[in-house]
């Protein structure tokens, strides 16, 4: 039974500060959406070549980035959750680094490593492979900033799986791979999907590393956030339309993530 809420000055202060914060985030977002629909024609602007091209490029690159993040990040997350090895905390911190690093620094680092004269880029260039300023570079930039979101969530998911279940699975004849597939992954699945969704949302909004490492080339490296930057000077309606699409996708992504977190809590 809930106790009846009575008025207190403390309660008023807490409620007010919460209201200010909600307004601080809600008003700009609401204003942007309102302006897009009232003063401009969002739906028409979305059909402009700048918007459609950026939209498809963004969806394609972020999908590839998430796929790579899941394929490479899942084993890493499992190792971090289950094994202790020398340098574990260093590696753990390194993987988290892109979350706090300014993305433009990440882009610069990628450029230094993979640019034409970089440690990896040099030999690649000699072999005739260009990485920087290509669509591939967009994917790499997104992967760089977004993969920690997947690994963190996946790792927490693996850590939440009772190890006795894995031990029992082994005594029931299942090898490591079968146990991973039939017990560990299903039980960590809400965290894995949630992490992938967060990773995707972050990749979709990637700007700083992309512009540094991939540039802003229409049709090749110009994803939605970069298209906003260009369109804001020539076609405000298009900029607003793309921004609204990003807001909607980000919001949907968060809803899915939270829904999965609740689902995970209920199943286990």
């Amino acid at each position: 039974m809930r106790r009846a809420q009575t008025f207190t000055w403390g309660g008023l202060v807490v409620g007010l500060s919460a209201a200010i914060l909600v307004a601080f985030i809600g008003i700009p977002v609401g204003a942007l959406i309102a302006r897009g629909f009232i003063e401009g024609d969002v739906l028409a602007a979305l059909r402009s070549p700048v918007a459609t091209t950026a939209l498809w490029l963004s969806l394609a690159t972020s999908a590839i980035a998430v796929a790579v993040a899941v394929v490479l990040g899942t084993p890493a997350a499992y190792l971090l959750a289950r094994r202790s090895f020398p340098g574990r905390s260093v590696i753990d911190t390194l993987i988290d680094l892109p979350v706090v690093l300014p993305p433009v620094v990440g882009g610069l680092a990628l450029l230094v490593a993979l640019g034409r004269h970089g440690v990896i880029g040099g030999p690649l260039d000699a072999a005739g492979v260009d990485v920087a300023f290509t669509t591939g570079a967009v994917v790499l930039a997104q992967l760089f900033v977004a993969v920690p979101f997947y690994i963190r969530s996946a790792r927490a998911g693996f850590e939440s799986v009772d190890r006795r279940l894995e031990a029992v699975s082994a005594t029931l004849g299942a090898g490591g791979w079968r146990t991973f597939r039939r017990v560990t992954v299903p039980l960590a699945l809400p965290s894995l999907i949630g992490g992938a969704v967060m990773c995707w949302a972050r990749a979709l909004g990637e700007f700083g590393a992309t512009i540094m490492f991939a540039g802003n080339v229409f049709g090749r490296t110009q994803t939605m956030p970069l298209a906003i930057l260009e369109a804001i000077e020539t076609d405000v309606d298009a900029a607003l339309a793309i921004a609204i699409v990003l807001i909607v996708l980000a919001f949907a992504g968060l809803l899915v993530f939270k829904g999965l977190a609740r689902l995970g809590g209920r199943v286990l």
Binding site: R164, L165, A167, V168, T171, P186, V267, L268
Partner: peptide, 13 residues
């Protein structure tokens, strides 16, 4: 070997 762990550890899913 059949092994019954403490509190059984049935697979919840």
């Amino acid at each position: 070997v059949g092994y019954l762990v403490q509190s059984y550890a049935l697979f919840p899913h």
